[in-house]
Design a protein around this nucleic acid. Structure first.
Lengths: 126, 126
DNA sequence: TCAATCTATATGACGCGTCATTCAATGACA
DNA sequence: TGTCATTGAATGACGCGTCATATAGATTGA
């Protein structure tokens, strides 16, 4: 039996889906067009940039994003191939890796972040 | 320069991403486990069910979901192969198709919808 | 009525995310 | 110290969504 509450829930969920997709694809398109990176690549870059000088382990990234561990690993592959990030081995635990922005990565992130924030403002700021 | 507003926007966006992913994957897992259909399959089934007896054209579906036209086409492929839906040709425009739930589709949708609403309530109703 | 154009859907190539698995390094405990 | 379980990360197979295109049917206008 479809209750009124059910219909409201479905409406609410569709609203979330729409605003999520609208925003995500606006970000995706802009970042792809102007910086040749996908949204997930940017998100990881952004997280690495936030780490500042603290070591930024792969593990930590996995905890700050809904992406899977293996997705993170592949995103980092692409970022590394693009020369934006580099994997460094940890001396205190040789299973771990931490990430560093390259100079190119720092520059691209700075520019892309401006675009990113501005698109968020357009799409989220009502 | 990272302003306070920027940080708030990023926080807001991450919040949306998290709640979207959390909810979507809970739905995905449950529907997959109990009914052997994915979330998008269910969403289409749900839209077709909403059409009641009015003809439900593929075209119309495309307008009610963030999915691409070709994604809708493929989701319908799967639903049809699973025997939950059938494509009917329109007499007034032979390019168009409309969809009908099969009996199995109606039954599965009824059960899955209960589960779907209940998971939405858990995940969205605070 | 015949082109030229447009519209509804399908399809194939491709990229990416997920799952399951693997591998090496670490920890725990006897 | 040796075994067994655990952990951080990478990898390959696979499914799905997207983009660009194809195709058949409709529409327009001379």
């Amino acid at each position: 039996m479809a209750t009124t509450q059910d219909r409201q829930l479905v409406e609410q969920w569709r609203g979330i889906q729409n605003s999520y997709f609208r925003t995500a694809s606006a970000l995706e398109r802009a970042l792809e067009a102007r910086f040749h990176i996908g949204l997930n690549e940017f998100e990881i870059l952004d997280l690495v940039a936030e780490c500042a000088d603290a070591e930024c382990r792969m593990k930590a990234l996995g905890e700050r994003t809904p992406m899977t561990q293996s997705a993170v690993s592949k995103v980092v592959d692409r970022l590394e191939k693009a020369g934006l990030v580099s994997r460094q081995t940890c001396t205190d635990d040789r299973r771990s890796l931490y990430l560093e922005l390259t100079d190119a990565g720092r520059i691209l992130h700075a520019d892309a972040a401006v675009e990113h924030r501005s698109l968020l403002k357009e799409n989220l700021g009502e």
